[in-house]
Design a binder for these strands. Structure first.
Length: 1074
RNA sequence: GGACGAUUAGCUCAGUUGGUUAGAGCGCCACGUUGACAUCGUGGAGGUCGUUGGUUCGAGUCCAAUAUCGUCCA
């Protein structure tokens, strides 16, 4: 077995092997406890930020997914019933427009050509393909979701929650119909969302004109008020002119009226500090609330003075009846007509050419018009307040804390939530309405329907709605709780028509945390794999067990859109928050600081990187980026398929028209096609694939771990489990005296004879039944015997790292956790511990205990790493199971069947020994100092050198304990150590303050060079000493600094001076100079 | 326009409540294939911490101003 371990870790093989293994074992499944379970596990719940089905996932999703999987695996190991709920979002406008766009490009068809049903059908086909792709990408990153529970926001489970919530809100009077300015595409005659418009500068004009001020009788006073505009035709819909309240040019006019010359309407002069700017133009602006967002906002502040907004447009962009004699003209034609009329009437002042930033529809490429239209709203006052309170009293906590203000500020505005969208893809609004001549007839019809014996208030709600604006009427609205209601036929027979609009996507995703757990169904567990949960007992056990969730992991841009709304609906429907923590992680950017996104074309498919660097390498790297401050910049390159040279990505690589662009390698000058999300390379073509050097980190780390484990396994021949008490080794091996070790050995013997699976052994949350006694502390007092100092050291370090990683994960500081682990594995376990135990592994007497500690440390290390790098750790765990199925410290136990269910390390506090770590550090410094001398003089490893060390008896004792290790690591023989050591002639030397080392190097080293080197060292020291002396000679430092700081500086200075003394002595001896 | 974040080595980033000589990975230089690992080992070079003021015995860290970049909101 041992000889079969390859020298390189093969990620693809491990990934292919272990994911299906975990799935088949059901390790990802999370279930509510069986009724009557006396010791149920506590739940840990993460709801995935549902990716939308518009396109495939990129590295931003990979980061998001990695962190959630990491937390889920970690909590699972800690003994929680860890649920990670997967699913996808229908993403209304984004998905519909992608499908429409493609249909138009490929078939020249619009949605009006094929109709609502056919379009929706096509989108379902798209959804099926991309959902499949997305879920497979998630699995590729190792996602341990409970895949039986996959949900989609338009599926029957989520739809039921949406309908129930809408109905409940409608009944509670929280939903109303009102006006709102939208971006109107006059060409396609539809509203487009804010993220579906782009801004572009166009050539336009900037007209200055004036309105005459009139007196109370409506007669001109002779005064005029000037303003400028780029859209003169909107003056037909003006409802005010506005000045700044402190603008002295106009203060006397505030409250007076002006007349619009082209239609004679009188409108007030109002003061509004937000809209008017004294420093711009005339300082006065006209206000057209129905056709400008800023004006509309102004109207909401000054409704009484202004009256209702006046809509000027038909849906096709021509003027409506409010356009007067220009009714029916296109708005652009009307513009010139209005200007001409103003000029004729003598109110035109000037015009200049100007570049005007104008919003365009991404879908028709035509300018959009702000357009006042009827929409559905949710009243936010009480809902928002509840969500604010939940954060204020810390029922929901943000990590990092600063994001709490984004959430609170936004909710604090309590702006009503516009939930309708003029789309076909989504949850259709469940309201039917019929026009009525007036309120009394509407009320009569309402009463008639409600008196029907089949009328059910839990299924249908009726309200009378009267539009206040001109031209509006009265309607009777019926909201139905389900689509299978018999009332649909009845209502439609009575002339009711269903609303054409669908709900905002966020309305359904806001319900995600409870909808996916089956709400509002209180009688059945939510379905598994599309089938009813066979274990259902007549109650929904899943919802109360898994709600509220534990933590939401997401990025900051949807704190308002999604996080706030989940809290709000969770409180509304469930009476409790949906999660306790919100972990906000960085955003992934490309090499130029642009956020990675599908629409920018700079998205990198995680699969590309997984193939190149391995899943674990990708995960470990990306987790190492997930800190609290900065976004993650990923400069990428293309690997030339001809010479494997790296071609750095430049901005122009992302900007190209559809086609087959080529990239030229600067090294071999050959061209090749390159990978982009926007096209597929030609069949058989050599493609320059995306590489991101930063991911080599994770790949290399995995390989290092692999080889460390490989080394361990190659040296486990003859391994036997045994208690390691770090008592004197030889007597114990001879069976002399039972002691602590004897007791533990007895315990082990009985364990081996009975148990196959370990009971819980840690300080985690395992149930009472699973508790075992606290592991015995390792006796660690120095001088106890010939215990290997490196064993105690590595265990002390392991205990520290375990504690660090656990604490860091509790705070979602993933980057620091990976650093801690990497440093431990690479710089401590590999560089020092493995090197130091090599002599013992070759010694028959010492080998058994060295093996036991080694395998114990490896076991714990793998457990610490598993959440970060699941595949390699499972692979190693399974291999280790073959060689050392019973292992662990201090008393071995049978390892778990699978890595994924191994307990998280805990309860090792007693192993920590800071004093020992300090002593060990001194040994390391001695070894480095010797290497340093070798390095400086470039002495080949083949040349033998010897070292003597002048130091305290204590250090000498440590040094002698590890003499073989010292010699191996320093590549020098230790000839003497102790206070009596004297300096040999013609030797190189180093000084550490409390230890001086001497290396006789006659013939190897130019003594002049050594003198020069030492002098340089001494000069450097003098600089430091000077700094310290200056500090100590400063009386206010002595007086004001804390005493312990002063003492510390004194001690450091003394050490530096001693070190300098040794150096100076060496210089004198070598050079004969004073 | 408002809020938040960033600016530290050639690159990408750490730096906990202010306290010895500011760290890591990659890259670079030199040496090395010694029985885990060249996706490696050993040693080395490289930074007046964006700028300007201030507080303090002491500032990468705290305060103010300023510049540049990014994100969200309007």
């Amino acid at each position: 077995m041992t000889t079969e371990i390859p020298k390189q870790y093969d990620p693809a093989a491990a990934e292919a092997r272990w994911f299906p293994y975990w799935e088949s074992r059901g390790d990802f499944n999370a279930n509510a406890p069986q009724p009557g379970d006396p010791h149920p596990k506590p739940p840990h719940v993460i709801m995935i930020p549902l990716p939308n089905v518009t396109g495939a996932l990129h590295m931003g999703h990979a980061l998001n997914g990695t962190l959630q999987d990491l937390l889920t695996r970690w909590r699972r190991m800690q003994g929680y019933e860890a649920l990670w709920m997967p699913g996808t979002d229908h993403a209304g406008i984004a998905t519909q427009s992608v499908v429409e766009k493609r249909m138009l490009e490929e078939e020249g068809l619009t949605r009006h050509d094929i109709g609502r049903e056919a379009l929706v059908q096509r989108i379902w086909t798209w959804k099926d393909a991309y959902e499949k792709r997305i879920l497979s990408q998630l699995k590729s990153i190792g996602a341990s979701c409970d895949w039986r529970r996959v949900r989609f926001t338009l599926d029957e489970v989520c739809s039921r929650a949406v309908r129930q919530t809408f109905f409940k809100m409608f009944k509670d009077g929280l939903i109303y119909r009102g006006k709102r300015l939208v971006n109107w595409d006059t060409f396609l005659q539809t509203a487009v969302a804010d993220d579906e418009v782009y801004e572009e500068e166009v050539d336009g004009h900037f007209w200055t004109m004036n309105y005459p001020v009139v007196n109370e009788a409506g007669q001109p006073t002779g005064e005029r008020i000037s303003f400028s505009t780029t859209r003169p035709e909107t003056m037909l819909g003006d409802t005010a002119v506005c000045v700044h309240p402190t603008d002295e040019r106009y203060t006397h006019l505030i409250g007076k009226r002006v007349q619009i010359p082209v239609n004679g309407r009188l409108i007030p002069i109002i003061a509004d500090a937000l809209l008017a700017d004294k420093t711009l133009g005339t300082g006065c602006v006209k206000v057209t609330p129905a056709h400008d967002p800023n004006d509309y906002a102004c109207w909401t502040r000054n409704q009484e003075a202004m009256g209702e907004p006046i809509n000027l447009l038909n849906s096709n962009g021509t003027l409506n009846e409010n356009g007067g004699k220009w009714e029916g003209l296109d708005r652009l034609v009307a513009r010139d007509a209005v200007v001409a009329e103003m000029e004729t009437l003598g109110h035109f002042e000037k015009v200049e050419d100007r570049k005007i930033p104008l919003k365009h529809s991404d879908r028709s490429k035509t300018p959009v018009e702000p357009y006042l239209s009827e929409q559905w709203f949710v009243k936010m006052e009480t809902l928002a307040q509840a969500a604010i309170d939940a954060v204020l009293d810390n029922r929901v906590t943000f990590y990092p804390e600063r994001y709490r203000s984004s959430y609170l500020d936004w909710l604090g505005e309590k702006r009503d939530w516009c939930i309708s969208r003029q789309l076909w893809w989504g949850h259709r609004i469940p309201v039917w309405s019929v026009d009525q001549p007036d309120e009394s007839s509407a009320a009569a019809l309402k009463q008639q329907l409600e008196s029907d014996p089949r009328f059910d208030r839990d299924q249908i709600e009726l309200t009378v709605h009267t539009t206040t604006t001109a031209g509006g009427g009265t309607t009777l609205q019926a909201c139905l709780a389900t689509d299978d209601s018999a009332w649909i036929t009845q209502l439609e027979g009575a002339g009711f028509k269903r609303d054409e609009d669908v709900l905002d996507t966020w309305f359904s995703s806001a319900l995600w945390p409870h909808a996916t757990l089956g709400w509002p169904d209180q009688e059945h567990n939510p379905p598994l794999d599309g089938h009813a949960d066979a274990s259902s007992t007549g109650r929904n056990e899943v919802l109360p067990y898994f709600y509220p969730g534990s933590v939401l992991v997401t990025s900051r841009d949807i704190i308002t859109l999604w996080v706030a709304r989940m809290v709000l609906t969770g409180l509304y429907n469930m009476g409790d928050v949906p999660f306790k923590h919100v972990c906000i992680h960085p955003k992934i950017q490309d090499g130029f600081g642009q956020t990675m996104s599908k629409s920018k074309g700079n998205g990198v498919d995680p699969i590309e990187l997984i193939e190149k660097y391995g899943c674990d390498g990708m995960r470990f790297t990306i987790a190492s980026f997930a800190g609290e401050t900065q976004d993650v910049r990923l400069p990428l390159g293309y690997e030339c398929p001809h010479c494997q040279g790296i071609i750095p990505q430049e901005p122009h690589h992302l900007k190209f028209k559809p086609g087959k662009p080529k990239i030229k390698c600067s090294k071999c000058k050959k061209e090749s096609q390159y990978a982009t999300p926007n096209y597929l390379p030609d069949e058989g073509e050599l493609v320059a694939r995306i590489v991101i050097e930063r991911f080599e980190n994770g790949r290399n780390f995995c390989n290092k771990l692999w080889n460390a484990a490989r080394f361990a396994m190659m040296n486990l021949e003859g391994y036997t489990p045994g208690v390691v008490a770090l008592a004197p080794l030889a007597p114990a091996l001879r069976g002399e005296g039972p002691g602590v070790r004897g007791e533990l050995q007895q315990g082990l013997d009985s364990l081996l004879s009975t148990a196959t699976e370990p009971t819980a052994t840690d300080g985690n949350v395992r149930s009472e039944a699973g508790k075992t006694p606290h592991p015995h502390p390792l006796p660690a007092e120095p001088g106890r015997g010939d215990v290997a100092i490196e064993d105690r050291w590595i265990l002390s370090r392991l205990a520290t790292v375990t504690d660090e990683v656990t604490s860091l994960l509790n705070l979602y500081k993933f980057d620091a956790a990976t650093r801690s682990l990497r440093d431990f594995v690479w710089n401590e376990f590999c560089d020092w511990y493995l090197e130091m135990i090599k002599p013992r592994l070759r010694d028959e007497i010492l080998r058994p205990d060295a093996q036991r500690v080694l395998v114990g440390v490896l076991d714990t290390t793998l457990r610490l790493l598993h959440p970060f790098t699941p595949f390699i750790t499972e692979e190693l765990w399974q291999r280790l199971k073959e060689i050392a199925p019973v292992r662990g410290l201090p008393a071995p136990v049978a390892a778990t069947e699978a890595m994924i269910i191994a307990p998280w390390p805990a309860g090792m506090e007693d192993w920590r020994d800071p004093a020992l770590e300090t002593r060990f550090q001194r040994l390391q410094e001695l070894i480095v100092a010797v290497r340093n001398v070798r390095g400086t003089y470039n002495i080949s490893p083949a040349v033998a050198v010897s070292t003597s060390v002048r130091c305290s008896a204590e250090i000498a004792s440590d040094l002698n304990q590890v003499k073989p290790q010292f010699e191996l690591l320093a590549k020098a023989t230790l000839t003497a150590a102790g206070p009596e050591v004297t300096r040999p002639t013609a030797s190189a030397s180093f000084s550490l303050g409390d230890a001086d080392g001497f290396l006789p190097l006659e013939g190897l080293v130019d003594l002049q060079a050594e003198v020069a080197r030492l002098k340089k060292e001494a000069d450097k020291l003098r600089g430091f000493i000077g700094g310290h002396e200056k500090k100590l000679s400063n009386q206010s430092f002595i007086d004001r600094a804390p005493p312990e700081v002063v003492v510390e500086v004194r001690e450091t200075l003394a050490g530096l001076q001693k070190q300098l003394g040794s150096l100076e002595a060496a210089i004198v001896e070598l050079s004969g100079e004073a």
